[in-house]
Every structure is written in structure tokens, then in C-alpha cells.
Amino acid sequence: NITNLCPFDEVFNATRFASVYAWNRKRISNCVADYSVLYNFAPFFAFKCYGVSPTKLNDLCFTNVYADSFVIRGNEVSQIAPGQTGNIADYNYKLPDDFTGCVIAWNSNKLDSKVGGNYNYLYRLFRKSNLKPFERDISTEIYQAGNKPCNGVAGFNCYFPLRSYGFRPTYGVGHQPYRVVVLSFELLHAPATVCGPKKST
């Protein structure tokens, strides 16, 4: 009989979020998941679920829940969905086509923008091939755009693969920082350890 609540607040209220190319993952297990707390949290810009209804989450049990978190621009949030393409979905964070879970995003301009620009948040701009679902690539190898080998030196046709967002408070909404948490639900042939409040007695 599990009684402790799942530590969703640790994920959602973290002081610093990860850059999207180096997205953070927390495994959540052996706890009671009260999703209504999240669902009623006012400032969400997006709360979209795939393969599961957000209002039914509290009735369900899962083997594991993974909480992935990172920061992207407002106009990139739409790429955090199954079957998407674009710089983020291709080179930074890719969801599987059969994704079961929820994508939760909110504007973090007050936290993550600075006058003069916040350059701490990076994304991958160049990559030889697209990421596989949930693949994480933190390499900083110089990207070779031409035929000539770069030998690890940036220059003509040789690019550092990461780019900084440089968030400023005055940017338009599409270019403002958004914090994103992706909850993915794993249902294995194993005992369920993460259940909603109704199922955990």
C-alpha cells in the first residue's frame, strides 16, 4: 500500500531547467500520482495528452512514469508532439509516433530571460542525422557541412553544433522561453508502482 505522493513538484518547480539538447529525465516510481494538482495549476500554456485522457489519469496505474524537462522557445512547443519535424524534434528531443503521455508547457519569461540576454539555454542546430525517439545527444563535436574534414576547428563550413537562445524579456511570445515537462507513461508486464489516488488503496 503506497502512500507517499509522487515528487512532481520537484520537477515542475525546479529552480533551473535543462537546455533542450541535454534534456533532463527523472524516473518516478513507487508513489501516488495526483495529476489533478498539475491539471489545476493555472499558468499552463499547453497540457496535451496522447493515448490517454488527462482527466482519467487519476484512475490509472503505470509501471513507471518518466518526467523529461527542458526549455525551448514558445514557437517550438508545437514540435513536442508525435510525428513532428523541425530543429527541436529532429536534433534535440524526439517523441515516438506511438507516444503515451502528456506534454505540459508554460511561459517562463520572468524566470529564464535576462536584460542583455540569458545565454545559458542551448539547443542543437546541426546534426548529421535525426534523433531516434528519446535519444539524447550531448556531443559538442564540430559539425562538418562541406567535404573538408574540420579536425575539431570551427570555421568555413565547420560549425559548433550548439546555439544559444539568448532570451531577453522584451522578445515577442514566440521567442520567449517556455518550460516543458513531458510525462511518459510506461506500461510493462510488471507490477504497477505509480497509481492515481483512487487506485492506491
Rank of each mutant, 00 (worst) to 15 (best):
V11L: 03
L95I: 03
G152F: 02
P169K: 00
T201P: 10
N75A: 02
D9S: 07
G146H: 02
R27E: 04
T3K: 01
N4S: 08
G117V: 00
G166T: 12
P133A: 04
P7T: 07
V194M: 12
D59Q: 07
T63I: 06
D59S: 12
L122F: 12
T140Q: 10
E10M: 01
S36G: 01
S129R: 06
F44M: 06
F47A: 11
P7E: 02
V115R: 00
N157G: 04
Y66M: 00
L188C: 07
R163Y: 06
R168W: 02
N87M: 12
N147A: 15
F160K: 15
N64M: 12
A42Y: 06
H175E: 15
R27H: 11
P133S: 10
D97K: 10
F126A: 04
S113A: 06
D97G: 05
P197D: 11
Y143M: 06
N13G: 09
D97H: 10
H175Q: 11
N120Y: 14
R16N: 13
L188V: 04
R27I: 15
F160V: 05
S78P: 01
S164G: 12
R73Q: 02
K114I: 00
E135S: 03
T63V: 14
N130V: 03
Q144T: 04
V32N: 12
E10S: 13
K198S: 08
A105W: 08
F134H: 12
G196C: 03
K148R: 09
P191C: 12
K114Y: 01
L5F: 03
P43N: 14
E141N: 09
L60G: 15
T193A: 09
K56N: 12
N4V: 05
S139E: 04
E10V: 12
N24T: 13
N1M: 09
N118G: 01
G155N: 13
R168T: 01
G155S: 11
P7I: 08
T85G: 07
P191Q: 09
S184L: 15
N151Y: 10
T3G: 15
N109R: 08
L5C: 01
K26S: 10
A145M: 05
D97T: 06
V71I: 01
A81R: 06
F160P: 00
N151P: 13
L111K: 01
F126V: 06
L125K: 13
K110G: 08
T85C: 06
A18G: 08
Y66I: 14
I138N: 08
P54I: 09
L5Y: 04
R163L: 07
L5A: 09
G83L: 15
G116W: 00
L125N: 14
A42E: 13
T100F: 03
N120G: 12
Y119Q: 05
P43T: 13
N24H: 07
K132H: 10
S184I: 15
T55R: 04
N151L: 10
G117N: 00
A190F: 03
F47W: 04
F160E: 13
F41C: 02
A18R: 14
S139A: 07
V194H: 05
S78M: 08
P43G: 13
D97Q: 15
S78D: 05
I142K: 04
V153A: 15
N118D: 06
N75T: 01
V153F: 04
K199T: 11
L111C: 04
L60K: 13
F45R: 05
P149M: 01
T201S: 08
T100I: 15
N1A: 01
N4C: 14
G166N: 09
T140C: 03
P149Y: 06
I142T: 06
T63Q: 15
I138A: 15
D59E: 04
Y21W: 02
V32R: 12
L122V: 03
S139G: 03
V37S: 10
G146T: 04
G166C: 06
V37C: 08
A46G: 08
G155T: 15
T193Y: 10
P191Y: 07
E186S: 14
V153S: 11
T63R: 14
A154R: 09
L188K: 15
S53Y: 05
L122H: 06
A22Y: 06
N120S: 09
V65G: 06
A190T: 02
A105I: 01
P43Y: 05
H189V: 07
V32L: 05
P7V: 05
G174M: 08
D97L: 11
E135G: 09
P7G: 10
G196Q: 03
F45M: 06
N4L: 01
Y123K: 04
V32S: 07
A190H: 14
A33T: 02
F126G: 15
K56V: 11
T140K: 05
F44Q: 11
V194R: 12
R163I: 01
V194W: 12
F44G: 12
N4Y: 02
V32H: 08
P191N: 15
V115D: 00
N118E: 06
N1V: 06
T3M: 13
L187C: 12
T63A: 02
H189R: 06
P54A: 04
L95V: 08
G166R: 10
L187R: 07
K56R: 07
R73C: 07
K114G: 00
Y119L: 01
